[in-house]
């Protein structure tokens, strides 16, 4: 049965009341552009609570987004925020993270942005273990452009470019992230707000490439078109099918029709980050200079730069 998202009753709209997390939002940019019933607001709110619990401020965190409904998240966060091109958020974030090793760089973007046009950047940043957290809002479609099918659309689902139902196999995002080298991989739905926030806290705390997938309703372009219903119905639909399995094999994460939606923490492991590996391989051996912001050690000096002199007479 379909329930309609009700408009807020007149007189119950609270004026001049601030949200406890307002300090993380660019309130001068609100109201946001997202539809009622969309999961994006919940994800953004979980993120602000995660920052709050970690005591992170504008001096600590930068947000990078690509393009899409999710991509607009950067513009609502009252932090250094970079709204880049479609699919390139992770590539931009790679430069940013390497330039500022003591800051936390967070990419918030959509499934199409991160895994279709940006898929190559995702797997390579994970492989390099660049120090960044990637939050993917998976709403199973290209929301902003009007509900076309994308790289996570389940087989059989309808999209505006899949009028007879999608026939392409979707990515299993936790499996892709894990096999590409991410050191932390989790999936929750936006109904599991507390768990989602906790996953964000873990992802923000663990050094290296960490990944959280938030399965979210997009009533406007996915839920209604697929007869799931409005935002709440879609939330219920995912949560009814969810099974929490910490430490599950990411290969079990396929979102196929009839399958459970496996949620929880799939991966948590350690390996050197891009800059740690860089330091071990180059700086330690050659006694070269650490990039600024990379640890507090004194700049090591060296008399020998023979490798270079070879080329310069």
């Amino acid at each position: 049965m379909l329930t309609k998202t009700k408009p807020a009753p007149e007189g119950e709209v609270l004026e001049n009341v601030s949200h406890p997390m307002d300090r993380f939002l660019r309130t001068d940019r609100l109201p946001h552009i997202w539809c009622s019933g969309c999961g994006l607001g919940t994800v953004l709110s979980c993120f602000t609570y995660a920052l709050d619990e970690l005591g992170l401020t504008e001096s600590d965190v930068g947000i990078v987004s690509g393009i899409g409904c999710t991509g607009r998240a950067a513009g609502y966060l009252n932090l250094d925020s970079y709204h880049t091109t479609h699919g390139r958020a992770i590539a931009f974030a790679t430069g940013l993270a390497v330039a500022k090793p003591d800051k936390k760089v967070v990419v918030i973007s959509g499934d199409g942005d991160l895994f279709a046009i940006g898929g190559n950047h995702f797997i390579h940043a994970a492989r390099r273990n660049v120090n960044m957290t990637v939050l993917c809002v998976n709403n199973f479609n290209y929301g902003m452009t009007g509900g076309q099918f994308g790289p996570t659309t389940p087989i059989g689902s309808r999209g505006t470019t899949a009028p007879y139902g999608n026939y392409e196999s979707p990515f299993n995002l936790p499996y892709l992230a894990a096999s590409s080298g991410a050191v932390y991989v989790a999936r929750w739905t936006s109904l599991h707000a507390r768990r989602l926030k906790e996953a964000m806290i873990e992802a923000l705390t663990i050094p290296g490439f960490t990944f959280v997938e938030a399965v979210c309703p997009c009533p406007t372009n996915y839920g209604r078109r697929n007869k799931i219903g409005e935002g709440l119905d879609e939330l219920k639909y995912y949560s009814d099918r969810s099974v929490i399995k910490h430490g599950a094999d990411p290969a079990e994460g396929d979102l196929l029709p009839g399958n459970d939606v496996v949620i929880g923490r799939f991966v948590h492991r350690e390996r050197p980050t891009f800059l740690q590996a860089y330091e071990q391989q180059i700086i330690d051996k050659q006694h070269f200079v650490k990039p600024q912001g990379m640890g507090k050690g004194p700049h090591r000096m060296s008399g020998a730069t023979s490798t270079d002199r070879r080329e310069s007479s």
């Binding site: 990078v64 970079y82 880049t84 091109t85 390139r88 992770i90 590539a91 931009f92 974030a93 790679t94 430069g95 940013l96 993270a97 390497v98 330039a99 190559n120 950047h121 390579h124 891009f274 800059l275 860089y278 180059i282 700086i283 050659q286 070269f288 200079v289 650490k290 990039p291 600024q292 700049h299 730069t305 270079d308």
Partner: peptide, 24 residues
């Protein structure tokens, strides 16, 4: 590396340009 900078070999030129902007 000799002067405290970082070289990143990216996966393509799209990301090279994007990372350059991020670095800036």
């Amino acid at each position: 590396p000799q002067v405290g900078g970082v070289f990143i070999q990216m996966e393509d030129e799209i990301s090279s340009m994007a990372a350059t902007l991020g670095g800036a």
